[in-house]
Computed example of a mutant assay.
Amino acid sequence: MPFTVGDVVAERTVHLTRESLVRYAGASGDFNPIHYRDDVAAAVGLPGVLAHGMLTMGIASSVVIAALEPGARVIDYGVRFTKPVVVDPEAGADLQVTATVAAVDDTATRIDLKVVFAETTVLVKAQLRVAI
């Protein structure tokens, strides 16, 4: 798949619920109660139950991976976490992911991810490098 700088590779909104967090905790083994108990989150000064950072990171990359051709390889992926994703017990939380081609060379394409929750960017320097 030929890429051009500025191309939007993928866009998706992913809805998280408290059930999503419980399922992720079971799959990852991360049972920190800030991810499922309001009382514990409040006791440590958090604004509410938070999505796991690795869940947020995984969702962001999955948006790109789903848009790539079969056989494409992610050769590098990194992010910096800046803000938490608070998952409301009733409304949940929507993560908006936009993946844009930022650089192309002879061996790889860098795709920058914009990940937003409640009009706030929650990951910065979120970048994947994909082998061509």
Rank of each mutant, 00 (worst) to 15 (best):
G58I: 08
G58C: 10
M57C: 05
V44S: 06
A42P: 07
T17N: 08
P33E: 05
D39R: 08
L55I: 01
A25R: 09
G26D: 06
V14K: 13
M54G: 01
M54C: 11
L50N: 11
D38V: 04
R37Y: 00
G6E: 04
R23T: 09
V40W: 07
H15L: 14
S20A: 02
G58W: 06
S28H: 11
G58Y: 07
V64D: 03
T13I: 11
H15Y: 10
S28R: 11
R23K: 06
Y36A: 13
S61F: 06
A41V: 12
A67S: 10
E69M: 12
A67W: 03
Y24M: 12
E11A: 15
V63S: 07
S62K: 03
V44Q: 04
F3Y: 14
M54H: 08
T17W: 09
R23E: 12
I34Q: 02
L21E: 11
P70S: 09
I65F: 02
R23I: 03
G29N: 10
G45I: 11
H15E: 14
M54D: 06
G29D: 09
G48F: 07
A51W: 05
S61D: 13
L21G: 14
P47I: 13
I34T: 09
S20W: 06
P2I: 01
V9D: 04
L50Q: 09
E11L: 15
G58L: 10
F31V: 01
V9A: 03
V22T: 05
A25I: 00
I59H: 06
E11N: 12
D7C: 14
G26Y: 05
